[in-house]
C-alpha cells in the first residue's frame, strides 16, 4: 500500500501544473453567469452567520463566553470563527463528493492522477475559506482587538485542515462512484455532525460537568451501556478541536491548547492516509464505473 502511495505522490507532484489549472477552472467557473459573481462566496456565509446569530443568539439567548485574554464578548464573532471553519470542512467535502462522477467524461478519455480533481476542488474551497477568514480578521480588528499576530498560526492551521478535508473528500468521492447514495447520505451525516461540533454552543458547556448549562454529561446510561463515556466520544470528533483552535486564535487571541493541537496533528494524517488508501483502492476501476 505504501509503495503505491509513494508512486501516487510522484504522479501528483508531476501534475502540479494540471492541479493549478483544474483549480483555476473550479474558481473561474464557480460563479460564472451569476449577476453577483464572487460576491456569492461572501454572501452565503454572511447569510448563514446572520440567520444563526438571530436564532441561537437573539431568540435562544445563546451567550458567548468572554474571550480570554482578548476580552471580546460577541456571540456573532464567536459563532463566525467556528461556522466558517465548519463550512470549509462541510462544504468542501460535500461539494467534492460528486467530482469524480461529474468529470466522468474526462476520466474516461484522458489519464492523469485522479487525485488532482479532488485536490483542485478542495483547494478552491480553501481559497473561499481564506477570503472569508480575511474578512473575519478585518472585522475583529475593526472592533479594536489585536489578532493579526496569530495569522501565521491560522494559516498553518488552514493548511493542516486542508488535508483533513482532502482525506474525507478522497474517500467519499471514490465511494460515491460505486454507491451514489453517498452524496445524499452525507447531507444527513454532516447536519448531525455540525451539531456535534461546538459551533452554536461553547465547548465549555461540555467541559464543565455539573454546571447547569451542561446538556451533555460526562457519562450516561445508553440502552445497556452503563457509564457510556459521552464526553470522550464527543471529543473524538476532530472538528471539535479545529473549531476550538480557531476560536482560541481569533476570538480569545491566544495560542491554542496543546491537547487540541496534538489531537489535530495525529488525527489529520490518519484521515488523510486512510482516505487516500480507500481512494487508491477504488480508483483502479473508476473509468469503468463512472
Amino acid at each position: 500500500m505504501m509503495s503505491s502511495l509513494v508512486g501516487a505522490i510522484k504522479d501528483v507532484r508531476e501534475g502540479r501544473e494540471l492541479l493549478n489549472n483544474l483549480t483555476l477552472r473550479e474558481l473561474r467557473s464557480k460563479y460564472k453567469r451569476t449577476a453577483l459573481g464572487w460576491a456569492w462566496s461572501m454572501l452565503n456565509p454572511l447569510a448563514t452567520i446572520a440567520i444563526y446569530s438571530v436564532i441561537f443568539g437573539t431568540i435562544l439567548h445563546g451567550v458567548a463566553p468572554e474571550g480570554n485574554p482578548s476580552g471580546i464578548n460577541n456571540f456573532t464573532l464567536y459563532l463566525s470563527c467556528a461556522l466558517l471553519t465548519w463550512n470549509f470542512t462541510s462544504s468542501g467535502v460535500q461539494a467534492t463528493i460528486p467530482t469524480l462522477v461529474g468529470n466522468a467524461n474526462l476520466i474516461k478519455k484522458v489519464y492523469f492522477p485522479r487525485e488532482l480533481l479532488i485536490g483542485a476542488s478542495v483547494i478552491s474551497w480553501m481559497v473561499s475559506f481564506l477570503i472569508e477568514l480575511g474578512v473575519l480578521v478585518a472585522v475583529i480588528s475593526f472592533t479594536g482587538h489585536m489578532v493579526l499576530q496569530w495569522i501565521p498560526v491560522v494559516l498553518v492551521l488552514v493548511f493542516v485542515q486542508f488535508f483533513l478535508v482532502l482525506g474525507f473528500s478522497l474517500a467519499l468521492s471514490a465511494l460515491n462512484v460505486y454507491y451514489r447514495d453517498i452524496s445524499y447520505l452525507s447531507g444527513i451525516v454532516f447536519q448531525a455532525w455540525m451539531f456535534l461540533t461546538p459551533i452554536v454552543y461553547p465547548i465549555e458547556s461540555i467541559d464543565k460537568a455539573g454546571n447547569k448549562h451542561v446538556f451533555i454529561p460526562i457519562k450516561a446510561d445508553i440502552w445497556f451501556w452503563h457509564d457510556f463515556p459521552v464526553r470522550f466520544v464527543y471529543k473524538l470528533n476532530p472538528m471539535v478541536h479545529y473549531v476550538t483552535a480557531y476560536r482560541n486564535l481569533l476570538y480569545d487571541g491566544r495560542f491554542p491548547g496543546v491537547s487540541s493541537l496534538v489531537y489535530i496533528g495525529v488525527m489529520t494524517p490518519i484521515v488523510m492516509i486512510f482516505g487516500w488508501s480507500i481512494f487508491r483502492r477504488m480508483i483502479d476501476r473508476v473509468a469503468e464505473e463512472v
Binding site: L18, R25, R28, K32, L106
Partner: peptide
C-alpha cells in the same frame, strides 16, 4: 475536459495541462 463556460484561451491552457 473543455469547460463550456470558459474561453477558448483558458481551455487551451486547461486542456494542454491535462
Amino acid at each position: 475536459g473543455f469547460h463550456p463556460e470558459l474561453s477558448g484561451r483558458e481551455n487551451v491552457y486547461l486542456n494542454g495541462s491535462i
